[in-house]
């Protein structure tokens, strides 16, 4: 016990934990997991919208991390590296399920559901100042998977279109237009939500 405490020493930094994990130190693996599990799991959960899948993918992401950790050279921040790896794990999984490709095909979303035309000429500024994060979370959950992925990657996680294009294997223009549609869809969902609320009062 005394020894275990020493090795946990007060000065253990993330860099040291990484260094030790690279040498196969079991405790450091767990420390790294404790530090990053919430962010990785949340990413998986938002992208899949499913707890069981998110758990499996979190596990897979960390396993890949540990398998590859010896190759981590610190060119980028560790969290950035891990995060990117987790995104790839999720995308790989979704690709196997065949979801994002189909939704990325612009034609598959029914035309009238997309696009701005119905707003033209009608003034319906509805949202500013009125949505809250909790409602937004729910609305994201109900987005079609393809939209949800792009929206989560860009607007929630902060990836740039060129990064998303590379990860998703699509064009930058495609990423932009999908993001736009996702936001439009969210605006619809949130306005409906708000209208319902108002009607109930």
């Amino acid at each position: 016990m005394a020894q275990a405490k020493k090795s946990a020493g007060p000065g253990l930094s993330e860099a040291e934990a990484i260094d030790r994990a690279q040498r196969g130190d079991a405790e450091s693996f767990e420390a790294l997991y404790a530090l990053h599990k919430r962010r990785v799991y949340s990413l998986c959960l938002r992208m899949t919208g499913n707890t069981a899948e998110a758990e499996d993918l979190t596990q897979e992401a960390f396993l890949q991390l540990y398998r590859k950790i010896a190759t981590f050279r610190g060119e980028s921040a560790f969290s950035t590296w891990l995060h990117r790896l987790a995104v790839n794990v999720v995308l790989m999984h979704l690709r196997k399920k065949g979801l994002p490709e189909v939704s990325l095909e612009e034609s598959l979303e029914p035309q009238q559901e997309d696009g701005p035309r119905k707003d033209i000429g009608t003034r319906d500024r509805v949202l500013a100042g009125s949505i809250d994060r909790l409602n937004l979370e729910r609305a994201i959950e109900s987005l079609p998977p393809g939209y949800r992925i792009i929206f989560v990657l860009h607007d929630v996680e902060g990836y740039e279109h060129n990064e998303i294009a590379e990860m998703m294997g699509c064009s930058i223009g495609n990423s932009k237009s999908q993001l736009h549609k996702a936001r439009m869809k969210l605006r619809d969902l949130l306005s409906v939500n708000r209208a319902e609320k108002a009607a109930r009062r």
Binding site: K37, R38, R39, Y41, S42, L43, L45, R46, A54, E55, T58, P116, D119, R125, V126, L127, A128, G129, I131, D132, R133, L136, E137, I140, F151, D155, V156, G158, H180, R183, M184, L186, R187, L190
Partner: peptide, 21 residues
């Protein structure tokens, strides 16, 4: 429209990683 879309994007930035596995 632009204001709404921007507001959605801004709110999304504030979403939190909330749940532990």
């Amino acid at each position: 429209l632009v204001q709404d879309l921007r507001y959605i994007a801004d709110t999304a930035k504030l979403l939190l990683p909330m749940r532990d596995p």
